[in-house]
Simulated scan of single mutants.
Amino acid sequence: MSTSLPMHGDKSVADHITIGLSKVAAALRSQAWEGGTARRLTPTQGQILALLAERAGEPVRLNQVAAELCMTAATASDAVATLEQKRLVTKSRSSDDHRALTIALTGAGRREAQRTMGWTDVVRAGVAGMTPDEQAVFLRGLTKIIRSLQEQGVISIARQCAGCTYFQPYVHADAAKPHHCGFVNKPMGEGQLRLDCPDFIPGSEAEQADRWRQFLDGSKGR
């Protein structure tokens, strides 16, 4: 009886997924450089503009920019200073802490942010080609990956459902919408999970751990 041997260079599914995510990241970097060169923006500057556009109406501090985009305070400060020189952002002292700087987009900055946010269209087109069920499974997987990155200290706290005090996983019998959002007081499905919600309020570490366990365990019976 013959014994099957592993092919040279065989990789696990986790390896293939990691490689795939790396290729997506490379594509995004390429688009950012290509889109930014003509407008004299670096990918870092474009990321900052996009972040400020996403947080429109919210005061965003300089240290938040650094934490959200996983960069050093010095890198964030230099990039923001350049954007200020280009009259795309303004800096002012925080109303509740005069030692802290808040960053806001100018009119030109808002227009530029819309262009930079278009850099992700190539990835969005690929995601749009997935079925709703595939998108929901993929979104759940991204939630887990982001949670792992938080636990490893690679990224700051993400404002995603699974860590929010309003989120109640698997409390409804409806398989299509098993979760509940206490903020809007409505049931929600896997495809409605958010990775960056403006209404996010973190619970205590114990509450987050318990909620995360429910989120993971609840799917096993479905």
Rank of each mutant, 00 (worst) to 15 (best):
M1S: 08
S4K: 15
S4T: 12
L5M: 14
D10N: 07
A14T: 09
A14Y: 07
D15T: 07
T18K: 12
T18W: 04
T18P: 01
T18E: 11
I19V: 08
V24D: 03
V24I: 15
A26N: 07
A26L: 02
A27F: 03
A27H: 01
R29Y: 00
E34V: 11
G35W: 02
G36V: 10
G36E: 04
R39T: 13
R40W: 02
Q45R: 08
Q45T: 00
G46T: 10
L49F: 06
L52F: 07
A53F: 13
A53R: 12
E54V: 10
E54F: 11
E54K: 14
R55V: 00
A56R: 13
A56K: 14
A56Y: 10
E58F: 08
P59M: 10
R61L: 13
R61N: 11
Q64N: 10
V65I: 15
A67M: 07
A67Y: 00
E68H: 08
L69I: 09
L69R: 10
L69Q: 12
C70N: 13
T72S: 15
T72G: 15
A73W: 06
A73C: 05
A74C: 05
A76R: 12
A76S: 14
S77K: 14
L83M: 10
E84T: 09
E84C: 11
E84N: 11
Q85D: 14
K86D: 14
L88W: 07
S92C: 10
S92H: 13
S95N: 12
D96G: 08
D97L: 00
H98I: 11
L101M: 14
T102I: 14
T102N: 01
I103T: 02
I103L: 13
T106Y: 03
G107P: 01
A108C: 08
A108Y: 10
A108N: 12
G109V: 08
R110N: 13
E112W: 05
M117A: 14
W119D: 10
T120R: 15
T120M: 12
D121I: 01
V122W: 09
V127D: 03
V127F: 09
A128L: 03
G129T: 03
M130Y: 11
T131P: 08
P132H: 06
V137C: 01
L139S: 10
K144V: 12
S148N: 08
Q150R: 11
E151T: 11
I155V: 15
I157R: 14
I157P: 07
A158G: 09
R159A: 05
A162F: 01
A162V: 12
A162I: 15
T165M: 10
T165P: 02
H172D: 15
H172M: 13
A173K: 07
D174F: 01
A175V: 12
H179C: 05
C181N: 00
C181H: 00
G182P: 00
F183K: 09
V184Y: 09
E190G: 00
E190T: 05
L193Q: 05
R194S: 14
L195S: 06
L195W: 04
C197H: 05
P198V: 01
P198Q: 02
I201Q: 12
E205W: 04
A209W: 01
D210H: 02
D210Q: 09
R211I: 05
R211L: 03
R213C: 04
Q214A: 06
Q214I: 03
S219G: 07
K220W: 04
K220A: 09
K220E: 08
G221Y: 02
R222L: 10
